Computed example of a mutant assay.
Amino acid sequence: MFSKLKSFFAPARPRANEPDSRLSALQHAVAALLVEAARADARYEAAEKALIDEALARQFGLSPAEAAALRAEAEAAQSEALDIHRYTKIAKTMSAADRIRLVEHLWRIILSDRERDPYEDALMRRLCGLIYVSDQESGAARRRVEAALSQG
């Protein structure tokens, strides 16, 4: 009986489909946040999936197939998640430069359809607050993305 009680309080062992390292957990968290941003306006299109794959490949040095697989895992996890806090808790451990790079990727996905949606804006304000990126830094990241998009 004591062993059952002890096992209840012991840290859970990772399951086969759960990330088992800090890098893997970070990759899954970032991927889930990118998927959340793409789905914020209730339209999740192939172009946004491609941007997510590109962002994951660039951020983590993944092959296109690895990035697509990570995105697919994140889509499933994000659709079952009750909130984004478990992902932002991990993402806020990134360096300041990496968090700003993440915000740029999020803005690139959000602005890819050339429309700003109130849900997307609200999500970005919430995400930035949770990962400790200021409104000024987020605004600067958005302007850089808008400038890049306008140049083609």
Rank of each mutant, 00 (worst) to 15 (best):
65 A>C: 02
83 D>E: 10
9 F>Q: 08
98 D>G: 05
110 I>P: 01
134 S>N: 06
66 E>I: 05
60 F>R: 02
112 S>D: 11
43 R>S: 10
83 D>L: 07
53 D>V: 05
54 E>C: 09
42 A>C: 07
130 L>Q: 15
36 E>V: 05
119 Y>R: 15
57 A>V: 03
54 E>N: 13
77 A>Y: 10
95 S>A: 15
2 F>V: 04
15 R>W: 05
89 K>E: 15
63 S>N: 08
27 Q>D: 04
150 S>N: 13
90 I>K: 09
138 S>E: 08
59 Q>V: 08
37 A>M: 12
17 N>G: 07
108 R>T: 15
42 A>P: 07
36 E>G: 06
5 L>Q: 12
132 Y>Q: 11
77 A>N: 11
150 S>I: 07
146 E>C: 07
86 R>C: 01
151 Q>A: 15
100 I>M: 13
87 Y>C: 09
12 A>P: 01
130 L>F: 10
111 L>M: 11
3 S>A: 13
99 R>V: 03
139 G>Y: 07
62 L>T: 06
129 G>K: 02
129 G>M: 04
112 S>F: 09
113 D>M: 04
88 T>N: 01
109 I>C: 02
53 D>L: 07
92 K>W: 11
84 I>Y: 11
96 A>H: 14
96 A>R: 13
102 L>C: 12
140 A>D: 14
91 A>E: 06
82 L>P: 03
4 K>H: 10
123 L>V: 06
100 I>Y: 08
13 R>H: 06
119 Y>A: 10
43 R>E: 14
23 L>Q: 14
18 E>K: 06
35 V>S: 01
134 S>P: 00
38 A>I: 03
26 L>S: 10
130 L>W: 09
71 R>Q: 11
67 A>V: 08
104 E>A: 09
21 S>L: 05
77 A>L: 11
58 R>S: 15
120 E>K: 02
5 L>R: 12
44 Y>T: 09
84 I>E: 12
142 R>Q: 13
37 A>H: 10
68 A>Y: 09
108 R>V: 05
45 E>V: 12
113 D>T: 02
91 A>Q: 06
119 Y>E: 14
95 S>Q: 15
137 E>W: 07
55 A>R: 00
25 A>C: 08
15 R>V: 05
99 R>N: 06
70 L>Q: 04
25 A>I: 14
9 F>G: 04
50 A>W: 04
107 W>S: 09
37 A>V: 13
126 R>K: 14
64 P>M: 03
33 L>K: 00
151 Q>Y: 08
52 I>S: 00
115 E>A: 12
114 R>W: 00
76 A>N: 07
131 I>A: 03
44 Y>P: 06
18 E>Y: 01
22 R>L: 12
119 Y>P: 00
29 A>R: 01
106 L>H: 05
